[in-house]
Design a protein around this nucleic acid. Structure first.
Lengths: 351, 351
DNA sequence: TTGTAAGCGTTATCAA
DNA sequence: TTGATAACGCTTACAA
């Protein structure tokens, strides 16, 4: 119940607090016998240094903060795994904050972190985030910041992202190749650069195929299951010509499955579906979901590595350290071309 | 870059540090004009109190620690959601630690936390955890502890669990009712009480149905995808009589799907599968997975509420505050009885 | 090789 | 109503 501190150790050993401290920190100027005596008692009493005292003294908290929209999402879970791995290797602690896609929450978290609770911050911004002043002020206070996946382009720091534009272009192209002509795009945010890039890839792929951009087919989701399914269903009813769905986040692909099922539409015969997703079990769905899979664990790991490099060097991070990893298109049943489509294509190639 | 502290504010306002501190904490003995002046400057300079200084002074860190085996698992993700919610409502911070099912890691995390970094700990123990001395010592130092889901029965503190025995009995019974006679049970650990309870429910349901317990059908998994799938496949080949699988954790149900697919076995015709799982998309699998679903968010929330009650009252937690929530059996396609089975049953009922 | 003392930023006690 | 001061537990000049 009563805590073991340096004073207690010093008293029991008839040494000064300073000597005990230095012995425990293995300083060169302490004799080996003394070190041994100190360590022995420290172990016996299960001494653990008070992190608030040493944090205050050294102006170091050995803690980083991770700010993400959600944790019940495979992408972020895997990223946290990567981050925790690196943090632990560096003997650091990880504070976690969920914004639930809410800008206000993000701002208040940033304010808290500005107080010096952490030595660095990793963030994937909320879909509602428009401004980045709250993050800028972290940097102004000397707290290094790394973005991962969802970034504010304008802020001068490292961003670890994936090739979203290309992936999006490729995904759309894949749907087109398999016969889709009216492809809906489900997005969480157009204000975020990630949303813009993914939308642009979609738009450009359509354009390249000579298909005009149809604004009605771009839908903004709300990250609320019931409402999003409702929205998708309304779109499907309003636009029976839709034959493809491109979901820019994991949950939206699932909601599309549910919406199609509710309406009696068959994937991939009636509608083909592709989505960004890190679900291991995409292949076990009915039908197996074609995905663009981001290297989530690697993203977390790389971003954390950049952050710790800055913390160790006591330097801010520059945008030049940004990294773009590659996502992977994994084709499965949800985008399978119908039989006549395949025949048509074969015919086309022959002629 | 340079930090704003009380001293800085005091100098600029020609006040003492003590007065500034009291003004910011809205103490009754400070005049309103002074409070206003102080607050205005504090806002202007974006003053944030140093948590390490106040933590040291007050012996309070306003932080809790959450120790879990994995985060890439829907149960734990949802539980964290519940925990974070309560923590935020209490203005507390959440440190997260992953043990990766490793006992050594759990011990070293417990040791770190014993140093006073946190005011309370929530833990779901690693499958490899046999001992609880490391957790006991947290309590001895006055750090309240709450178990959730995976507990050490023997430790005298609150445990928030679900009705695992009943759920397991019910799940096994469900497989039996739908025609299974040789049911395999996949478990992560038999040393943990949760593993024991789930195994016991399975054993008792078999016994009640007059089916002898067959040790060979109980398999210990390793939480390693490739190996676990391999183990399941070997079991299926060795024992072609197996017609049901009961997976005690989420990933094992998925691995069973993969193993069956690899071997060309059809679910539910050849093998019926049921599993503990919090996957929202269980209903979208092929076939839809019958699950026992735990109230994960509620578990996190209730457990955190108990912890904060103790922190607020500055008291340790007693086992009497333990809570048992109910899981839910959700029947889907993976355990559907074959047609002749249904006919047989109908016949049975008629006669 | 060890001890003394100052200081990290905050808050609580006591005095003015 | 405000100010001076000590203390939280630790680290580090500086002295001895």
């Amino acid at each position: 119940m009563k805590s073991v501190n340096l004073k207690r150790l010093a008293e029991e050993l008839n040494l000064s607090v300073a000597t005990v401290s230095r012995a425990l920190n293995d300083r060169y100027d302490i004799s080996q016998p003394t070190k041994d005596r100190v360590r022995e008692l420290a172990n016996k009493l299960n001494y653990e240094p008070n992190p608030y005292a040493s944090g205050l003294r050294n102006q170091k908290s050995r803690t980083i903060g991770v700010v993400i929209p959600e944790v019940a999402n495979h992408f972020f879970s895997l990223a946290i795994n990567g981050i925790e791995e690196v943090a632990r290797a560096n003997d650091y602690h990880v504070l976690i904050y969920l914004t639930h896609e809410d800008y206000e929450r993000e701002v208040s978290v940033a304010r808290l972190l500005a107080g010096g609770r952490v030595e660095g911050v990793m963030i994937s911004v909320a879909s509602g985030s428009r401004d980045y002043a709250h993050l800028d002020s972290l940097q102004e206070r000397g707290i290094p910041l790394v973005f991962f996946d969802r970034v504010h382009e304008e802020l001068a720091t490292a961003k670890v992202t994936t090739n979203d534009y290309e992936s999006s272009y490729q995904a759309t192209r894949h749907l087109l190749d398999n016969g889709c002509r009216a492809i809906a795009h489900l997005t969480l945010s157009e204000s975020l650069s990630i949303g813009k890039r993914r939308l642009q890839g979609y738009v450009d792929a359509l354009k390249a195929a000579g298909i005009p951009y149809d604004e009605e087919l771009v839908v903004h989701a709300l990250a609320n299951k019931a409402q999003d399914i409702q929205t998708i269903q309304e779109l499907l009813l309003k636009r029976p010509d839709i034959d493809g769905f491109f979901a820019s986040i994991e949950s939206l692909a699932m909601y599309t499955y549910e919406a199609c099922r509710n309406l009696g539409l068959v994937i991939p015969t009636d509608i083909k579906v592709i989505g960004f997703s890190n679900l291991e079990m995409a292949s076990l769905l009915d039908p197996p979901l074609t995905t663009i899979t981001q290297p989530a664990y690697a993203i977390g790991k790389e971003a954390a590595t950049i952050l710790f490099r800055a913390i160790t060097k006591n330097a801010l991070i520059t945008a030049t350290q940004s990294l773009e990893l590659k996502s992977e298109l994994i084709v499965r049943g949800s985008t399978r071309a119908s039989v006549d489509m395949v025949a048509a294509k074969a015919h086309q190639q022959r002629s």
